[in-house]
Design a protein around this nucleic acid. Structure first.
Length: 125
RNA sequence: CAGGUUGGCUGGGUGAUCGCGGCUCAUUCCGCGAAGCGUAGGCCAUAAGCCGUAACCCGAUUACGGAUGACCGGUUACGGACUACGGAUAACGGAACCAUGGGCUGAGGAAAGUCCGCACUCCACAGAGCACGGCGCCGGCUAACGGCCGGGCGGGGAAACCCGACGGCAAGUGCAACAGAGAGGUGUAUUGCUGGUCAUGGCUGCGGCCACAACCAGUGAGGGUGAAACGGUGGUGUAAGAGACCACCGGCGGUGGCAGUAAUGUCGCCGGCCAGGCAAACCCCGCCGGGAGCAAGGCCAAGCAGGGCAGAGGGGCUGCUCGUCCCAUUGAUGUCCGGGUAGGCUGCACGAGGGCGUCAGUAAUGGCGCUCCCAGAUAGAUGGUCACCACCCCAUUCGUGGGGAACAGAAUGCGGCUUAUAGGCUGACCUGGAAA
RNA sequence: GCGGGCGUGGUUCAGUGGUAGAACGUCUCCUUGCCAAGGAGAAGGCCACGGGUUCGAAUCCCGUCGCCCGCU
């Protein structure tokens, strides 16, 4: 779980994103996005029963969530994002899921390239 | 040593780093603010404080000094309790639950399937009968169970051991394709065997013998069909045969003794000779079952708007009948149109609880003592990355390198069952071989 | 959480104890110069899976798997 302000918690919000959101597809995940009136961007992660059993669904959601968490400060504010796991998500490695998430976010033009590159800072320390 | 049977335990570890949920503490703000402190006020006196002083005591020696100072007289400072005010703190309560920091803690043996059983909660206290559903050898355990333990019986296995929906088909009804003479009651004949009637042919030593058609009668032994054909073996009997009769055996019904709480076992006696199979066919017998479910239920917040038509009945807790209760002509209820909500808290984590010991019991289990506190999410936490060690597989120049690591994720809780499961540890038993 | 149903040739479905069928599709042949339509014929099933009851199971019972639906 992300920290509370960054979670998309109410079912009405999720429904709104599902119905009105613009979508981008990747073999490992689907991203739906709508503009919100919030100061921050909020995220939700969905794995349907088609993805697998409970263990597999948990695994898929955790991988997606962790990928988003590590790059959250690069994402522009004020968007509601809905990540939907696919059948291959749980079987993939974390690195693959991470690149897939970054690809989806950049295709949705949500990455703020002026933000500090946390990744490099981490590897330097 | 090899093969097998069966029970129990476990379900990777350590560290670094970036994160998440819960509880808790501190930091922030607010409320209420005790004792104590300060100020003011009067009150208390039987005061141990102060003043005076007799006596006693000590030193000096007849004068006094010192200390303690009773009684008595006086006094009011300290004191005592009280009242009012003052500013503060602890504790408590609340807000915020946002941020930061600290501490503790965070998936399973099946959390799974939802197949049973309970707790808990609500319902118009749920009564009777029928229906319906479940269970089904006996005894025990349990809150309860379709569970567990022990025992019996039947089946499998060489054995350890395993498996069994294991009440009733001489209460009734029903079912059995094909094949077969006949498939459910007293019934069956175009095979066979036997006798009779009337012929025919062959042989003849004239007494008969053999073969065979038709009809009538007896028979169910032999052959044959089938999953299954109305007991088995031996004899008596007969024209041929048959439980027709007899002996033994098996099975059945009744009855009695002994062992056992019982299921049952065992030993007799009597009967009739057989009364078949299927109740996971209807059913009968015995026992059990009110219904719904934590989205139960309780509290709070927010929001809205009613109207048309039908209408005297409607309503349960599957169904029906009776009974009972609730709502309803102040319009219940049904239906159509329209409007509002999709939040929070609680239930919700101390329990039929875990561990250890001990006692009772063959055991399941129970009693007692000590000890521990052990997830509570809500678009749903328990995760990501890296390193090392242990495990398995492959390669190996024996240094190491590469890969793999099961089944599976709490959602009110608990007791079972069932199903999935890589590997590891360990107890007991059986059979065979070898050695001593 | 509670409850119900389904699984049969490639597809849609019958069959409710006695040797598994229909329609469409597929294939072969006929018809046509060729195709369609039409006609004749054929192939194709361990009845989802594993046990049990029964002489015998697609059917009855138990368990497993998958799919679908309803209520709250």
């Amino acid at each position: 779980m992300l920290q509370k302000p960054f979670r998309l918690r109410r079912s009405v919000d999720v429904k709104r994103v599902r119905q009105q959101g613009k979508g981008w597809r990747h073999p490992l995940a689907i991203l739906l996005v709508t503009k919100s009136d919030q100061d921050v961007s909020r995220f939700a992660f969905i794995a349907s029963r088609g993805v697998g059993k409970a263990v597999v669904r948990n695994r898929a959601r955790r991988l997606l969530r962790e990928s988003v968490r590590l790059h959250m400060d690069e994402v522009m504010a004020g968007w509601d994002c809905l990540f939907i796991a696919r059948a291959a998500t749980a079987g993939a490695s974390f690195a693959d899921v991470e690149t897939a998430v970054l690809q989806l976010l950049s295709r949705a033009h949500l990455l703020d390239h002026n933000a500090p590159e946390r990744h490099e800072e981490q590897s330097n320390t």
